[in-house]
Design a protein around this nucleic acid. Structure first.
Lengths: 229, 229
DNA sequence: CGCTGTCTTGAACGTCTTCAACCATAGTGG
DNA sequence: CCACTATGGTTGAAGACGTTCAAGACAGCG
């Protein structure tokens, strides 16, 4: 059973009516996933709407060419699977829990009812979709840079903008991604990412820590991006 | 003044109520743009909702690095500018008419009223956004391929899926893009695109014509994509 | 006619990938 | 406790691929 007050704290449901909220709490379940556990697979029928309550979910797919790409990392308050419910009826990618993760799980039919009967939910949905679309646009811009160096710099910059916290040593980006995963986000090979980030580590531009990445020299990062190639 | 019957033929407004339709026709204008004319520029206040009625609009931007990228090509029935109205209030890219183009132009305030007062319009909007999001996902997948060859092949394939017409010589993709524009869509240089497509021309895989591209050997295209790299 | 835009080609260069090997660390089971 | 294994990070060398720059072909148009 879901706690109405905690659901209210989710941006997506902050303006939901009391009636709709009660209905949602009644029809949704809370589910816990272990690290590495799959939430759904590419091609599965889109039977559930999910929202991350705590933890982190990676959405990724393997292309025909064998290349693995990460479409996004989703954190608390972010919804996954809903586009597939309305469009195509199949999940277009795999979803896996990166850490121990709790999710709100609402069956497809309940989700559609909620959307239909509560205009304010539809409007929140629209707002969410526009944010997703913007994130994808940024992603396309990132991938359009020719040099891997610029792509990694842009990726870090967009994480920093979203989640960065000012620390004494620089800007801390609390994102735990290994080199392989960064490679899968910027469209490059792990070895290339390692070579570039090792250089940054030595030059004290960006350093890697247990909590995430520390951007020590933001200006140097900006320069990497501005470079042509 | 807009013609109610022709507005009804637009997928986006096919299920609109009679009242909303009348209201829309009253508040929207029809505007004609010459080839090369700008509809809006990156950074402009998002003061208008547009829908392409006839012709073609290119949305593009110039990145900090100087690289020019095309975010999308929009045709009849497709809406532009609406994400910016709800999110950020500034257009995130430039819009230019590729041919002589007529657009439906609805001021921001009227658009918001329409959305608020007519739930069926909001639902069509959601459907549209999910389509856009899917298109962007395909775009990210395309750009994630490392070899330019694969990226061009994927781009053509997605155009073909959407607009392709079966002809005697193969599958005709009625899209007029020069080599520079293809380069800006796949994140590569014009010369590279030329070299690859010249080879295809010789090998009769894909040939370029006045009307667009003719995919003569779809299997060869698929092979290009499957190749690792 | 000369101009402009698009397409084309060549050669040198730089970047990224590929493949192979290697190191460090943490966890597991005997 | 140690050998074993898995995972993530690291490095080197060779070669493929794409870019860059420079030059030229070609068509359409004033």
């Amino acid at each position: 059973m879901l706690d109405a007050n905690s659901v209210r704290t989710l941006p997506r449901f902050s303006e939901i009516s009391a009636v709709a909220l009660a209905w949602l709490c009644e029809h949704a379940e809370k589910r816990v996933y272990a690290p590495g556990e799959f939430i759904f697979l590419e091609g599965d029928a889109a039977a559930h709407f999910f929202m991350v309550l705590q933890g982190e979910v990676k959405i990724y797919k393997v292309l025909e060419s064998g290349r693995e790409i990460i479409l996004g990392i989703f954190r608390a308050g972010e919804a996954i699977g809903e586009v597939a419910i309305l469009d195509g009826h199949e999940y277009p990618a795999n979803a896996v829990a990166q850490q121990s993760t709790t999710m709100l799980d609402l069956p497809r039919k309940s989700y559609l009812l909620l959307l239909k009967n509560h205009p304010e939910v539809a409007l929140s949905f629209i707002r969410d979709l526009t944010l997703r679309l913007r994130a994808m646009r940024v992603r396309v811009e990132t991938l359009s840079e020719s040099r891997v160096q610029s792509r990694i710099a842009l990726l870090l910059q967009s994480f920093a903008r979203e989640l960065g916290e000012q620390e004494q040593g620089g800007l801390l980006v609390p994102v735990k991604l290994n080199r392989s995963e960064i490679a899968a986000m910027v469209g490059a090979r792990m070895e290339t990412v390692i070579r570039i980030m090792s250089r940054w580590q030595k030059e004290k531009t960006v350093t890697t820590h247990k909590q995430g990445f520390l951007v020590e020299d933001p200006d140097a990062l900006k320069e990497m991006i501005a470079q042509e190639g």
